[in-house]
Write a protein that binds this DNA or RNA. Structure first.
Lengths: 134, 134
DNA sequence: CTCCTTAACGATAATCGTTATCATTATCAT
DNA sequence: ATGATAATGATAACGATTATCGTTAAGGAG
């Protein structure tokens, strides 16, 4: 007997997708994960990537980062939760903020509610695009 | 002569939409704004609501709040930027956090990048849903 | 006040990321 | 090896939003 929200068979596609995400440091989209995993599993379909990615998110192995007006990014789970997106090129990276004290600060002014998590997204120009723009 | 990103004619639909947003304190979606504005402008279409709402966002009169896996919410512009969404009922409200010091904190660890804005979304159970859930 | 230009409208098709469906394939306990 | 069925790939469907386009109506000129 097994938990019913977990994949029950090991497949080439699942391990390919998992290894791509675990070895990527650039927060790829589902489409990018699919392209990369196709090196190992040629006929891989985007639907399967989404399905497996969602499983991995449920399992806590992978994290999904929602970006307004852009496809979600996927990343191996680490402590960090804050991110920075470049509004020009779309590049996205972690920001190591002290989320703990910020959450505590927020909870103090949300009496009654139960805050479970915080999504923090900074927007602006990345170092590269800043340099290019006059 | 006028700026070319601004509506140039006063219409019943624009003033209805604007007055609905300005008088709503519950962060309505475009669909909700449309329903409410229909009291004043019966045949109002959702496409027009989106068009006008986007204009108002550009003008800075209205703010758009992106919510993952849910339609955007619209709100009259005030100082606050942080929000709380209930993962059960979808209720959304402002959270008065000290965003200034948090932004300063973040900028210190994003050397090279230019942070223009922060989107901060807390997720959890609102007071009502917390009470209902055993 | 009427006419005329054209901004803005309503209806509807299109887009895009993501999810659901479903017949086919392939995993793995027997 | 075989069979039950989980997982796949292809494709249709979805929901939020945007674009298109023929029609309507602001609002300035006469």
């Amino acid at each position: 007997m097994q938990a019913d929200n977990v994949l029950k068979r090991n497949t080439r596609q699942k391990s390919a997708i998992e290894s791509v995400v675990l070895s990527s440091s650039d927060h790829p989209t589902a489409l990018t994960v699919c392209e990369r995993a196709k090196d190992m599993v040629p006929g891989l379909s985007l639907g399967t990537v989404y399905r497996v990615l969602n499983m991995l998110v449920k399992e806590g192995v992978v994290r999904e980062i929602s970006v307004p007006d852009a496809p979600s990014r996927f990343d191996k789970t680490t402590r960090t939760h804050a991110h920075f997106v470049c509004t020009v090129c779309g590049e996205l990276h972690d920001v190591e903020v002290d989320e703990g004290s910020f959450l505590r600060h927020a909870k103090e002014r949300c009496i009654g509610d139960e805050i479970d998590e915080a999504e923090i997204l900074f927007k602006g120009l990345c170092a590269d695009c800043k340099g290019v723009k006059p």
